[in-house]
């Protein structure tokens, strides 16, 4: 436990310097307070008006922030749905392929699906080469499905001495392949759709605008000021950084895990499919 705490602390200290959003905000805040002290004085006669202004500004600000957090959650849920859809389609593709007569093409299908799943699980989501590699596996899958549908492999009839697969199975196989292709494309599209950088700058400016009101607010006790300003800033900052973490699902707390791929399409599950096929024949 102590070793774990030591390593976590060490890693956070190393990463501290990369937290530009925090340091930029603190520098801008310091500058704002300096400007306030040098050029303005507290408006003593408009305190009631200031309190009302802070109140309605808070409603507007909270709405803007929760909309951004909600958008982040929504996008993360959509990506997870696409991952689930892709994993289910791959599983159904294998199940459909299992019903085709003949071993050779199903074994090839199983091998390609396994390679594709391994590639997705290893995938570095921002690495372009990994995308190309997974696309290559998908094209192999397309060729295999094509061979199964046309019942030919490298120009020879694979089912010459066996029964022909029914047409509905061919249609189902193609449909599942299209589902995999579609879900994969949607997954990449959703991952690349991020909240634009200038939205964060605008949100930061809104935060400063709100905090400015607290600078002018007249407190009689320091403890009260610490409580009001501290709790408000902590809740805003927590929501802000949660929204930031949700914006990039390739890293951070809400990193994509590809759980359906691990659970449904691990090597063991695919091997089990093969065993079932041999047992039934």
């Amino acid at each position: 436990m102590l070793i774990l705490a030591y390593h976590v602390g060490k890693k956070i200290l190393i990463e501290l310097i990369k937290w530009y959003d925090v340091w930029v905000f603190i520098v801008v805040l310091y500058g704002t307070i300096e400007i306030n002290q040098r050029f303005f004085c507290k408006p003593l006669f408009d305190q009631d008006l200031l309190k009302n202004f802070i109140e309605w500004y808070a409603i507007f600000y909270a709405l803007a922030l929760t909309m951004i957090v909600g958008e982040g959650w929504n996008r993360l849920n959509k990506i997870n749905t696409e991952i689930d859809r892709e994993a289910d389609a791959l599983l159904l593709l294998l199940q459909t392929g299992k019903l085709f007569p003949g071993h050779a093409l199903f074994d090839r299908l199983k091998k390609i699906v396994q390679d594709y799943v391994d590639c997705v699980l290893r995938l570095r989501l921002k690495d372009k080469r990994s995308h190309e590699q997974s696309l290559r596996h998908l094209l192999d899958l397309r060729h295999c499905v094509d061979a199964m549908i046309r019942e030919v492999d490298d120009g020879r009839d694979v089912n010459a001495r066996q029964e022909k697969p029914p047409e509905f199975l061919k249609a189902e196989l193609l449909r599942q392949y299209c589902e995999v292709y579609d879900a994969r494309g949607d997954r990449f599209d959703l991952i690349s759709q991020k909240i634009p950088a200038h939205v964060w700058v605008i949100l930061g400016a809104f935060s400063l605008g709100w905090l400015w009101g607290f600078l002018w607010l007249e407190f009689h006790e320091k403890a009260m000021e610490a409580y009001v300003v501290g709790s408000t800033t902590l809740s805003i900052a927590c929501l802000f950084y949660v929204a930031r973490a949700l914006n990039d699902p390739t890293k951070g707390s809400w990193k994509l895990t590809f759980k359906p791929f691990k659970e449904n399409l691990s090597s063991e599950s695919i091997k089990q499919l093969i065993l079932t096929k041999q047992d039934t024949q």
Partner: peptide, 18 residues
Amino acid sequence: VAAITPLIKALIVTIAVL
């Protein structure tokens, strides 16, 4: 680290503001 990063960032900002 990923789980506590937003909280630590928020705490740093709060301490600076306070």
